[in-house]
Amino acid sequence: MKALKQIVLLLIVCPVLFIFSYPLLWLVTACFKSNREIYKPLILFPKEWNTSYFAELFSGKVIDFWGFMTNSLLTTTLQSLIAVFLSASVAYIFVFKEFKFKRIIFILAVSLILIPKQIMIFPLRELIFKMNLNDSLWAIILPGALSGIGILFFIQVYRSLPRDYVDFAKVEGASDTKIFLTTLPLILSPLLCCFMIHFILAWQQHLMPLLLLNDNQLLPVAMSSLLTSSLSYPLAVLMCAALMCILPSIVLFLFTYKNFRSTLSEQVI
């Protein structure tokens, strides 16, 4: 009976999963296809597997692939690291410290989440031009280095931490910096989880790099110019680039999936 139920469930779920994963499967196989086959989306597997497209992409003739890739990886990783560290420390202060105007500052911090970055982009652009940061990668890293949702998330995490730890440490005479640093390993799983979410979201940024960078491009944006700039190369090269573009997120997600799940069910938001 139980086995039967599982099978029925699988039968219901599988078609949905197939619909949702079909484009991804298609993308993977499209990397080996000729132009004609790519225009027929119902054909999943190519007649002959042609691996030369990857070589063409990596050679850097079509776009400066490695340059864009390092740019993208660098900005996203740095930005997420800083964001995780900052939001954790801010949350620490909110939870364990008392100071004037705490409530008001807290509400301000929370409202950060609900105002999407896109809305603030134009003043931000002005600011960055004034700081002479346009066309440098810092123009992307700095604005992304703070996340409202991260702060809220870590506040929840710190609240669930036994308060006695911190009180004991204080009695023993540890400074706040020291307490903060030593409690970090305790919240490793949420830290990783937050890093992952931030990384994935930052990786997908489009508007900011489009407005702020010229030559020093990031991979996703570079791809959109690749898409529009004629068809002088085989389409499969574009597909290879697309695949490489989602690979970092997927790999990162694979490694942190377990953490993510446990954090989600423990710290129900």
């Binding site: 779920v13 949905v16 999963l17 949702f20 994963s21 484009p23 991804l24 298609w26 993308l27 790519i38 225009y39 989306p41 994935i200 990786w203 997908q204 489009h206 996703p220 944006v221 791809m223 959109s224 898409l227 574009l238 597909m239 697309a242 573009c245 989602i246 997120s249 997927i250 997600f253 999936y257």
Partner: peptide, 22 residues
């Protein structure tokens, strides 16, 4: 299965666009 379902969420919009043109 929930992992498979989640994969599309990891795509940058540009990749989505390329796929969805098809």
């Amino acid at each position: 299965s929930s992992f498979i379902l989640l994969l599309p969420g990891l795509f940058p919009p540009i990749v989505l666009a390329i796929l969805f043109m098809n």
